[in-house]
C-alpha cells in the first residue's frame, strides 16, 4: 500500500508562494489502478513526482510499502548526453539487474535498433518514451507511476504498453495521469480529480470524469 498523509506543496513564485497541493491524503491499495484527472497545471505531475520521491513535499508524509517506480514522464530518468545503452547500464547497476537480460528485453520492446547506441538527446519524443517505458517495466516494480507518457507513441506502442502493463502485470498498482478520458475509463478502476489544489477521490471513474468536465 502507498499512503499519502496530508501532502502539501507550495512553490515560491515572484511574490510569495502558490499552493499547488493542499493536504492531499489517500491510500493506494495493492493492485489498484488510480486515474488522476485535472486541468493543465492543476498539480497532477507534481503529485506523481512527490509520490515517486523526485520532489519533496512542503509538508506531509508518504509511506511506501510497495516498491515504487520513478515517475514515467517525458523528461527525467535519462542523461541526454549518454547513449541509450549507457543509460541502460546505469539503471541496471543501481537496480542490480542482469545487463544482458535487460538489454534483450529493452531491444525487443523499444525497437530502437542501432539508435540505442546514440545519445538520448538525439531521440524523438516517441523514441524516448519507448525507451523509458521499456526500462521501467524491465524492473518489476509493485507500483508504476505513469505521467501521460503512453499517449505519445503510435498505436502499436500503445497496444504493447497495454499488453505489458495491464495484462501481464495486472496485479500491480498504477497511478496514471492522463487527459485521455477513454483511456482512463478503459484501464483504471478508480479515479480522482485535482482541482483548486484539492484532491477529490470519486467513487467511480465515470463520476470522476463528470466532475472533471464540470470544472
Amino acid at each position: 500500500m502507498i499512503r499519502c498523509i496530508d501532502i502539501t506543496k507550495d512553490y515560491a513564485i515572484h511574490r510569495g508562494r502558490r499552493r499547488v497541493l493542499d493536504h492531499v491524503s489517500f491510500d493506494l491499495e495493492r493492485g489498484q489502478k488510480l486515474g488522476v484527472l485535472g486541468r493543465n497545471g492543476a498539480g497532477k505531475s507534481t503529485l506523481i513526482r512527490i509520490i515517486g520521491g523526485v520532489e519533496m513535499p512542503t509538508a506531509g508524509e508518504i509511506q511506501r510499502n510497495m516498491t515504487t517506480s520513478w515517475p514515467l514522464a517525458f523528461g527525467g530518468a535519462f542523461q541526454g548526453s549518454l547513449s541509450g545503452i549507457d543509460n541502460l547500464r546505469f539503471i541496471c547497476r543501481i537496480y542490480d539487474l542482469d545487463y544482458l537480460e535487460t538489454r534483450a528485453f529493452v531491444d525487443d520492446f523499444a525497437e530502437l535498433g542501432r539508435q540505442l547506441g546514440e545519445p538520448v538527446k538525439t531521440y524523438s519524443s516517441g523514441m524516448r518514451a519507448r525507451l523509458a517505458f521499456a526500462l521501467t517495466i524491465a524492473i518489476e516494480f509493485e507500483c508504476y507511476l505513469i505521467d501521460e507518457v503512453i499517449m505519445v507513441g503510435d498505436s502499436r506502442f500503445t497496444r504493447r504498453c497495454k499488453e505489458e502493463l495491464f495484462e501481464k502485470r495486472a496485479d500491480r498498482s498504477i497511478i496514471l495521469v492522463s487527459h485521455d478520458m477513454n483511456f482512463i475509463s478503459e484501464v483504471c478502476d478508480s479515479a480522482a480529480v485535482i482541482s483548486n489544489s484539492h484532491f477529490h477521490v470519486c467513487d467511480t471513474v465515470p463520476e470522476a470524469i463528470a466532475f472533471h468536465e464540470r470544472n
Partner: peptide, 17 residues
C-alpha cells in the same frame, strides 16, 4: 551494498560523460 552499487554506477557514468 545498495549505496555501494549506486556509487559505483555513478563513477562509471561520470567516466563515460
Amino acid at each position: 551494498m545498495l549505496q555501494g552499487r549506486v556509487i559505483w554506477a555513478l563513477m562509471m557514468r561520470e567516466l563515460h560523460t
